[in-house]
């Protein structure tokens, strides 16, 4: 299995001159193509820091991070931006939709920064992504006119519109009720089944339990990295 994420001795130190915080220490793991992985840990465990690095929004202060065969360390901001645009789809806890912009325009947003997608085909691609999320009838609605679950589905459509290698979800169900949580998780595992690598950062055991592999962090390092074979079927049953 070709690795999508290779983390080698990742370390991240925050140093503002007076206080020095080691948010990540010696983190090592590899995530292969098509995996569904949960990264868990309580607050302060370093999972947000790790997410930032995995999402190419931040750089490790030590160690190596290789995303889909590309070494991220030493890249310029502009190269990182292009990498985020082409290889990663983000799903956030608070959806992060542009409020007074239609669902369709929100989904189009990443393609604005990808010159390889011709302007004329953006609308069509965005519409297809919304359609996959079952939201084609909501395309012209603004986020305020949609339910929380629908908003998160718009956000997922935005994440997958440019066919990323990796979907990075940061507490994707944190702001949702249990029904919407189930539907969002179903969608994410559905995407995973169709071949996309999905990494979910969460502190909810419930959500983590639905992932085949769980990486737990505490105080900046990995304490467990388990594959839960038995959960797969349980997941399937619960979701259906």
């Amino acid at each position: 299995m070709k690795p999508v994420i290779q983390a080698e001795n990742l370390g991240r130190v925050f140093d503002n001159g007076t206080v020095r915080v080691e948010a990540l220490k010696d983190v090592n793991f590899t995530i292969g193509t098509g995996e569904l992985v949960a990264i868990t840990g309580s607050s302060g465990s370093g999972k947000s820091t790790l997410l930032g690095i995995l999402g190419c929004l931040d750089r490790p202060t030590s160690g190596n991070y290789i995303l889909d065969g590309v070494a991220v360390a030493g890249m310029q901001n502009r190269e990182l931006a292009a990498l985020r645009n082409r290889k990663i789809g983000f799903v956030f806890q608070s959806f992060q939709l542009l409020q007074r912009t239609s669902a369709l325009d929100n989904v189009e947003l990443p393609m604005l920064y990808n010159p390889s997608i011709p302007e004329g085909s953006r609308k069509k691609l965005a519409m297809e992504a919304l359609d996959r999320m079952g939201l084609s009838d909501r395309a012209l609605h603004k986020p305020s006119e949609l339910s929380g679950g629908q908003q998160q589905r718009v956000a997922i459509a935005r994440a997958l519109v440019s066919n990323p290698k990796l979907i990075l979800a940061d507490e994707p169900t944190g702001n949702l009720d249990s029904e919407s949580t189930a539907s969002v998780m179903e969608i994410l595992s559905g995407l995973n089944k169709s071949g996309t690598t999905v990494v979910i950062v969460t502190h909810e055991p419930d959500v983590a339990a639905r992932c085949r592999r769980v990486i737990s962090l505490r105080d900046g390092h990995i304490i467990t990295d388990q594959v839960q074979e038995s959960k797969i079927f349980a997941d399937a049953i619960r979701v259906t």
Binding site: G55, L57, A81, A82, R84, Q96, P110, Y113, N114
Partner: peptide, 8 residues
Amino acid sequence: LRMALGAT
């Protein structure tokens, strides 16, 4: 958000 989605 725009930066996360790939804006330089």
